[in-house]
């Protein structure tokens, strides 16, 4: 048997207000429906006058409740969902740490979904300055339909027509073979080769305006892509320096690691080798080696 709630025990009005809010937070409700709902909980009738007062109190407290008259019945609806939850500073910090680590570890597709969750949960952060979701901003400027299309092209090994924004030449069209989608510096890139070149180029996704998959098979051209570059690095370097995600150790000797890199883009490979400096003791690709010395010579000009 239900018992009537004791007014000395709880604040009946406050309780009723919260219960009305809870119901309206789930769905719009007719006046009769709210009264029935309250009757079931309180085990006593609630008058029209009391309900009217309650609704006015809720409105006065800042909740956007609208009255609608449909078929001679009063309906109540809550415009904005109630947010009675706040993440503490520490919880926000945990979220921020996971986000930072995820950019290093999770594959690009997972990051896209993580972004959706973070955007939703962001509104609950007690102090929004503690959770920097700006890292995800880049992904908002990316057309995800385009990413899906490019990914399909990569999986099927087909040529794609792309329209892209070139840094020097404005909007351009090109027939390309997309080879991988990759996150670099919290941004999404497509690595590709052009029809007439074996070199790998890269394009940031926000610069790609549209893409169309053709039915031209690119399997043969993909096979011709330089698979990897090998170089030797002093073993001592890795005692206190991290290995790149794209690096794989082929052979270890007492003094040297033979590394194979899966980085397909020359620009990023050259950057890596420049960082290695004298710790790099051999490079298998002479073209890359020349690029490095050219960059060093150019840089030196400023110091003469």
């Amino acid at each position: 048997m239900k018992t009537t709630l004791n007014e000395d025990w709880i604040l009946i009005t406050g309780f009723r207000l919260l219960k009305i809010l809870e119901l309206l937070n789930k769905k719009d409700a007719k006046k009769s429906e709210i009264k029935e709902y309250l009757k079931n909980i309180l085990n006593k009738e609630v008058s029209d006058e009391t309900l009217k007062l309650d609704i006015n109190t809720l409105i006065n407290s800042g909740f956007e409740i609208k009255r609608k008259h449909i078929d001679k019945q009063t309906h109540y609806c809550l415009s904005n969902k109630v947010k009675m939850f706040k993440l503490t500073k520490e919880e926000t910090f945990i979220l921020d740490s996971i986000k930072n680590a995820s950019f290093d570890f999770l594959e690009w597709k997972k990051i896209l979904f993580l972004k959706e969750f973070y955007k939703r949960i962001f509104e609950f952060a007690q102090d929004k300055r503690d959770l920097f979701i700006g890292d995800f901003d880049f992904f908002d400027s990316v057309n995800m339909g385009l990413v899906d299309k490019i990914e399909e092209g990569i999986n099927k090994k087909l040529y794609c027509y792309i329209l892209y924004n070139s840094y020097n030449n404005g909007i351009k069209e090109a027939l390309v073979i997309p080879i991988q989608i990759i996150i670099r510096n919290h941004k999404l890139y497509m690595d590709y080769i052009k029809d007439d070149s074996k070199e790998v180029f890269t394009l940031r996704f926000d610069n790609i305006k549209s893409a169309k998959i053709t039915d031209i098979d690119a399997s043969l051209e993909i096979k011709k892509i330089k698979k990897s570059v090998k170089y030797n690095v002093k073993k001592s370097y890795f005692e206190n320096n991290p290995m790149e995600n794209s690096e794989k150790v082929l052979k270890k000797t007492a003094l040297v690691y033979e590394i194979e890199t899966l980085e397909k883009h020359d620009f990023f490979l050259v950057q890596r080798l420049l960082t290695l400096g004298k710790n790099c003791t051999k490079i298998s690709d002479s073209k890359i080696k020349n690029k490095i010395t050219d960059i060093l010579k150019e840089t030196l000009e400023a110091y003469k």
Partner: peptide, 22 residues
């Protein structure tokens, strides 16, 4: 809180990956 939210499909996947990261 009795005032809960329902994550859409993409947000739910995002939450799954957050748990995976944890």
């Amino acid at each position: 809180t009795p005032f809960k939210i329902t994550l859409n499909k993409n947000e739910e996947k995002g939450y799954y990956y957050l748990l995976e990261a944890i």
